[in-house]
Structures are given as structure tokens and as C-alpha cells.
């Protein structure tokens, strides 16, 4: 359905969270995973190319997840990059904001490997259509 070899960028300001997300992604069979600690760093990494999928936290200092998403969507090269937003807020307005900004899907912390897999499956199913 999707390539296990795709290169994923995990963005979170809390390194423990990055490890957790990475760990879950590894359980799902992905191993080309890189990290960034905020939106600014993430965007620079994305610009350098080679990434197929972006998993980003919402609430970060400097450049937030939403900000990052908007930058990605308005970048000529990156605008079709699939983006999964990780958020702890079960608040609709945030989700709506993210959806408006063009997020492909989102997942609420804490999540299990199964939930994450379901989300990733959904994203790539839709992209295929």
C-alpha cells in the first residue's frame, strides 16, 4: 500500500516524544526516520529534500506545527507532501484549522501503533485515488 522505505521526518520539541513516535513507526516497519525539534529546523530539513512523509507535533516553540504545515503547503516543491499532525488537543477548532491549512490527517496523543497505522493507511489510500 505504501513504501516501507519512505523517508519520514518526525517533528517535536520534546525529544522523548520524538523517540516514542519513532519507536512506534519502527514497529510499523519504517526505519528511514529523521528528527527535527521545531518547525524551523524541520522546514530546513524538508527543503534539503528526500522526505516522503511528515509527522509533526502541533504545539512547539518558535515555528509551530500549524505554521510548518502552512509553509509546506505554500512551498512549490513541498506542497504535495503528506502531513500527519500529532495533537493532544481534542478541540475541534484546532483540528478545523489544521484541516483548512491542508493537513492530510491527524492523530491524538496518546496513540497506539494500530491507530497510527490506520491513519497512515488512510492518508496513502486517499493519495492514490
Amino acid at each position: 500500500m505504501y513504501d516501507k522505505n519512505m523517508k519520514i521526518l518526525v517533528v517535536d520539541d520534546f525529544s522523548t516524544m520524538r523517540r516514542i513516535v519513532k519507536n512506534i513507526l519502527k514497529q510499523l516497519g519504517f526505519d528511514k526516520i529523521e528528527e527535527a525539534e521545531d518547525g524551523e529546523q524541520a522546514f530546513t530539513k524538508l527543503k534539503s529534500g528526500g522526505f516522503d512523509f511528515l509527522v509533526t507535533d502541533w504545539n512547539m516553540p518558535n515555528v509551530s506545527g500549524l505554521e510548518l504545515l502552512k509553509r509546506v503547503r505554500s512551498d512549490a516543491k513541498l506542497k504535495s507532501m503528506p502531513v500527519l499532525m500529532v495533537t493532544a488537543e481534542a478541540e475541534k477548532e484546532q483540528v478545523v484549522e489544521a484541516v483548512k491549512a491542508g493537513v492530510n490527517n491527524y492523530v491524538i496523543k496518546p496513540f497506539t501503533a494500530d491507530v497510527l497505522k490506520e491513519k497512515i493507511d488512510k492518508i496513502f489510500e486517499k493519495l492514490k485515488k
Binding site: 505554500s74 484541516v99 491542508g102 490527517n105 496518546p110
Partner: peptide
């Protein structure tokens, strides 16, 4: 996390707001 299960039809919302994200640059 169980309260709001994210089953919004993302495609619909997206097409509704297509091209609008650059207008919503505030948080």
C-alpha cells in the same frame, strides 16, 4: 482522546477551503 474520533471527511473540508490556507495566517 476517545471523545472526538477524528472521522471528519478530510477531503470535503479540504475542498471547501481549498486555496484558502494562505489567507488564514493567524492562530
Amino acid at each position: 482522546h476517545e471523545e472526538l474520533h477524528p472521522d471528519i471527511d478530510t477531503e470535503d473540508l479540504q475542498s471547501n477551503f481549498a486555496g484558502e490556507y494562505e489567507d488564514n495566517d493567524y492562530r
